[in-house]
Simulated assay, not measured.
Amino acid sequence: MSRKPADIARLERYGPDTSEYTLAIITDEDHAAQIQLEDGQVAWRSTLRYDKLYRETDPDTGKVRYRLEEIPAHQSGEHQLISLIAEGGRGAEFSELVLFGQRLITFDDRTGLVCEIRNENQLIPRHILMTGSGDEAFKGFKSEWATLKGDQMIVGSHGKNAREEWIKVLDRNYALESVDWHQYYQNMRTALGVGEQGYVTHEAAEWHPYRNQWLFFPRKISTTPFDEPVDEQERGGNTLIMANPDFTDIRTLEIGPRTPDRGISSFKLIPGHPSECIGLKSVEIGDRTETYLFCFDLEGNLLQEDTLIGRYKCEGVEIL
């Protein structure tokens, strides 16, 4: 019997009767990630937390709602991941989580490091992705989003400049291909109407194998040039992009109210319920950081309003 492609197997790990899930959520705390170990060695730390997510159906209306329940730290709900690899004095800035077969993978958006997470707190480096095509600069790839398409893992970046418009394609053995996605990113900018002066920042994307569609949920959308204070406080988006495989047919869908200082940093299709999604929204204003979890469906309905999960920045969520 032939094996299912990885993207479909990921969605079919649970059936339509599933109502309880375990989430993995990872932090990207930028400069705050640096620590000193007991032996005096400098290292970088990220927090991996686990939570429960419950799907509930109202018996009278049939409406679906999701409910988050935190697993306390003392009940193995929180673990520390330690990295000894940095670039420019920064490391362990993990921006996404993807379950690739049986392996939970995370990506350091500072160093380009690709790691497997084992035994809840062990980082196993597997690859270092380099910026752009991989040939032009000795700089780690700013990994921001990742998903499975067929038997490959696709890793992408913000898409704000030419280097960040390349994607990385990894197979199950971590063999690597770099692909220029300039036209795809440009088509998304055009669909959002940002014009030549504006920009779009991507940190969350999923390939939907049943719909044969790309789903992108931009973190920031602006019709004016980048201005950091304005970007932090006013450019958070609530517009989901739905595109055919070559991005020649794109439609957009607003999901819930727009909260200007919150932008989507990760989302996932929910196994067993592939028209429903879970996502993270991050706030990053100066030293203030917050993360919210929300759920929605691909018709535009909110299934869980923004729920504060911590006053730190999380940029990756996966369903285990």
Results as ranks from 00 to 15, higher is better:
residue 276 E to A: 07
residue 313 K to A: 06
residue 67 R to S: 12
residue 25 I to D: 00
residue 237 G to L: 10
residue 132 G to D: 07
residue 155 V to M: 05
residue 14 Y to A: 11
residue 128 I to G: 13
residue 50 Y to Q: 04
residue 165 E to I: 06
residue 134 G to M: 03
residue 181 W to L: 09
residue 195 G to H: 07
residue 114 V to H: 07
residue 7 D to V: 05
residue 132 G to W: 09
residue 117 I to W: 08
residue 136 E to R: 13
residue 175 A to M: 11
residue 63 K to C: 09
residue 251 R to I: 09
residue 67 R to H: 13
residue 273 H to Y: 14
residue 126 R to E: 02
residue 166 W to P: 00
residue 122 Q to S: 14
residue 240 L to Y: 05
residue 312 Y to F: 12
residue 288 R to K: 11
residue 82 I to K: 07
residue 230 V to R: 15
residue 319 I to Q: 01
residue 6 A to T: 01
residue 146 A to M: 07
residue 272 G to L: 11
residue 239 T to E: 08
residue 263 G to N: 03
residue 207 W to R: 07
residue 84 L to E: 11
residue 265 S to A: 09
residue 123 L to M: 05
residue 233 Q to M: 14
residue 255 I to T: 00
residue 229 P to V: 05
residue 291 T to N: 12
residue 197 Q to V: 05
residue 117 I to A: 10
residue 37 L to D: 10
residue 292 Y to F: 11
residue 174 Y to S: 08
residue 83 S to R: 07
residue 117 I to M: 09
residue 52 K to N: 14
residue 282 S to H: 08
residue 282 S to P: 01
residue 104 L to S: 04
residue 299 E to Q: 08
residue 179 V to S: 03
residue 133 S to Y: 14
residue 79 H to D: 03
residue 230 V to I: 14
residue 88 G to Q: 07
residue 267 F to R: 01
residue 294 F to V: 01
residue 210 Y to I: 01
residue 307 T to A: 11
residue 231 D to G: 00
residue 308 L to Y: 12
residue 264 I to Q: 04
residue 38 E to C: 12
residue 305 E to M: 13
residue 194 V to K: 03
residue 61 T to F: 12
residue 189 R to C: 12
residue 223 T to F: 11
residue 233 Q to E: 08
residue 86 A to F: 08
residue 148 L to T: 00
residue 59 P to T: 00
residue 299 E to A: 11
residue 7 D to P: 04
residue 160 K to Y: 13
residue 99 L to T: 02
residue 120 E to K: 13
residue 129 L to Y: 13
residue 26 I to D: 00
residue 139 K to P: 04
residue 178 S to H: 08
residue 258 R to N: 04
residue 98 V to K: 15
residue 84 L to W: 13
residue 106 T to N: 02
residue 127 H to S: 14
residue 163 R to Y: 15
residue 171 D to H: 02
residue 159 G to Y: 08
residue 114 V to I: 02
